[in-house]
């Protein structure tokens, strides 16, 4: 009872990265609260597979729901499972990924349980909260910290009176770490029909195409990112040339994506991918807050910009004042020579 729950998103027989990242975060929250970590795995043909994937992240109990009708994901049956399970288990915290599945499921579950949900959190912490109106101080609440208002402010949200406290987190924001590869928890395989009624299976998936991700931005050691200052789709070619030499991945700011210079899945920032490379080369990026939020933890930041006062320069280790068209070919040349 009153444990920390993580909804594990499953594609086929594997667990999505974002869920493993949340298990690691959930483990540390559970430790701080002195409670257990439980994982919910819903899918088809996952029995005796998924528990072995999630357990090493420090999961004390895995709830498995295995039924051919539960994959691919549809809203209603997954909602019914979580709602009925949560009514029984009374979790104090529930975390899920802020991707298409989590952002479809989370609000529906929170509405059914009238519990609060905070979307796209960038930090989760435990702390007290004093309700100024009633004078009551609540201990050990989940601080759900997220950027708001287009990334211009950061808000700390709490749910003092309702359980579970629900939050979604984007992929790449937290770090997944195996706690102990021999960690032993309990596996509970539930009878699906106890949780879901036939009428929940009204939405039918007729067709489904998943393409393997075209880039590996999240895990890249070197990221070269282009902004609106690259001028065009063709302008981005320079970045690919440099990326090829350095074995780097190419990313982009929201402005470059919105302008159609590159694909949406290359967007770095608060509403895109979060990256933490060894080196981040920002080319023609002015540095809106929403972009900085997705790359500020890079080890070394190099900014190439014609504007010596571009906002991104304040967080850069090296500021090269000049045009990308001039600087990048020189970088390629000197790198090849070295």
């Amino acid at each position: 009872m009153n444990n920390v729950f993580v909804y594990c998103e499953i594609e086929g027989q594997s667990v999505q990265d974002v869920s493993l990242e949340l298990l690691t975060k959930g483990r540390s929250l559970a430790n701080e609260l002195g409670v257990q970590l439980e994982a919910v795995c819903i899918g088809s043909g996952i029995k005796s597979v998924v528990d072995k994937i999630v357990m090493p992240y420090g999961v004390d109990r895995v709830h498995v729901f295995d039924d051919p009708r539960l994959a691919p994901y549809t809203s209603l049956p997954h909602t019914s499972i979580l709602v009925n399970l949560f009514k029984r288990e009374q979790p104090q915290i529930c975390l899920m990924g802020a991707d298409v599945v989590g952002r479809d499921l989370g609000p529906r579950v929170s509405s059914a349980l009238t519990s609060g949900l905070t979307a796209d959190c960038t930090r989760l912490e435990i702390g007290p909260y004093e309700d100024k109106k009633t004078g009551v101080t609540h201990q050990n609440l989940l601080y759900q910290i997220r950027p708001a208002f287009g990334g211009n402010i950061v808000a700390t949200i709490v749910n003092p009176d309702h359980r579970p406290q629900m939050a979604t987190v984007r992929s790449g924001v937290m770090k997944a770490e195996i706690l102990d590869k021999n960690y032993k928890g309990e596996v509970v395989v539930h009878t699906v029909s106890d949780f879901v009624s036939d009428s929940d299976f009204v939405v039918e998936v007729l067709d489904r195409h998943i393409k393997a991700a075209k880039n590996n931005l999240k895990g890249a050691q070197i990221v070269i990112a282009g902004g609106y200052g690259m001028g065009s789709r063709e302008g981005f070619q320079l970045l690919y040339d440099l990326a090829k030499e350095l074995h780097a991945e190419v990313g982009a700011s929201r402005a470059a994506v919105d302008a159609g210079f590159c694909d949406h899945d290359m967007q770095i920032g608060q509403t895109g991918v979060t990256v933490r490379p060894k080196i981040y080369i920002a080319c023609g990026i002015s540095g809106q807050i929403q972009h900085l939020a997705g790359m500020q933890e890079s080890n070394i930041i190099i900014s190439i910009n014609t504007d010596p006062d571009a906002p991104i320069n304040t967080i850069a280790d090296y500021v090269i004042t000049g045009s990308v068209e001039e600087v990048i070919p020189k970088m390629i040349k000197f790198y090849k020579n070295s």
């Binding site: 949900l117 909260y129 309700d131 211009n152 402010i153 950061v154 808000a155 709490v158 003092p160 009176d161």
Partner: peptide, 9 residues
């Protein structure tokens, strides 16, 4: 159910 505890720049 959600309350804003604090807002910062």
């Amino acid at each position: 159910p959600t309350k804003v505890k604090q807002v910062e720049n």
